Simulated scan of single mutants.
Amino acid sequence: MDEPFFRAAVDPALQRRFDDPEWRRETLASQGAASARKAVALNLENLRILHQAGVKIGFGTDSGTLPQRIPGFAEHRELELMTQAGLTPAQAMRIATRDSAELLGLKDRGAIAPGMLANLVVLDSDPTQDIRNTRGIHAVWRRGVLSPAREAHD
């Protein structure tokens, strides 16, 4: 929660709560946190098994359904968790792009090719070397147009 990438995405009021040492201590020691840790471990194992079995996997964090799920950050965390489950960074990125577009029946996106929507995220470092490199966003192109710079990431 102290990473600049996270802080740029989280609502300031929620960040203040996360920064409260008493809230952190109580939350980390809670039964809910212990249950969540077990659930994440089980989810990672299930993902690994399903992926190895050839089951089609989609990407999505349900960001926004709870205040603790931070849109713009949660997706990067999901990629990281996918690699913790045993997928390579390239496999995780393929699931997040091409495979998810295919599962949704979106034939005009998910790959870089003629006739596809030109939505691109240009990174500062190679994410196949470390999936956390997806957090180093250099530029975003949406429908072939460079998006304005975001002050939080300048």
Rank of each mutant, 00 (worst) to 15 (best):
F6C: 02
G136W: 04
D99V: 14
A36C: 03
L81H: 06
L103C: 09
S30M: 01
A53H: 06
G110N: 03
M82H: 07
Q84P: 00
I57L: 13
Q84S: 06
V10Q: 04
I131H: 06
P12F: 01
A85I: 03
D2L: 13
G115Y: 13
P148H: 14
L47S: 05
K56E: 10
R98F: 05
R142I: 15
R16N: 02
D19R: 01
A36F: 00
P114C: 08
E75H: 09
W23F: 14
A36H: 00
P89A: 10
R16T: 04
T88F: 03
A53V: 02
V121C: 10
L50W: 09
R24I: 00
L14V: 08
A9C: 12
R24T: 00
I131C: 11
T27N: 01
D126I: 06
L66V: 07
Q15S: 05
W141S: 04
D62C: 06
I112A: 13
H51P: 02
I70M: 03
R7Q: 13
A139T: 10
A39E: 11
M1H: 04
G86I: 06
G144S: 14
K107Q: 14
G110I: 01
M116V: 10
L14G: 00
V40W: 00
K56N: 07
A149W: 05
G58A: 15
K107R: 14
W23H: 10
G32L: 04
R135E: 14
D19P: 01
M82E: 04
G72A: 07
P21G: 08
D2S: 15
S100W: 01
Q15A: 14
G110R: 01
L120K: 08
D130Y: 09
H51R: 14
D11W: 00
F59K: 10
R48H: 09
L146D: 04
A96E: 05
N46P: 01
G54I: 10
A41L: 05
D99A: 12
H153E: 09
P67D: 12
G54Y: 10
D2G: 11
A74Q: 03
R143Q: 15
E151A: 14
F6Y: 15
A34G: 04
A41K: 08
N133W: 02
I95R: 08
L28A: 02
V140C: 06
H76R: 09
A92W: 10
R94K: 12
Q91S: 08
L117T: 10
L28D: 00
N119G: 11
P21N: 08
K107E: 14
G115I: 14
G60A: 11
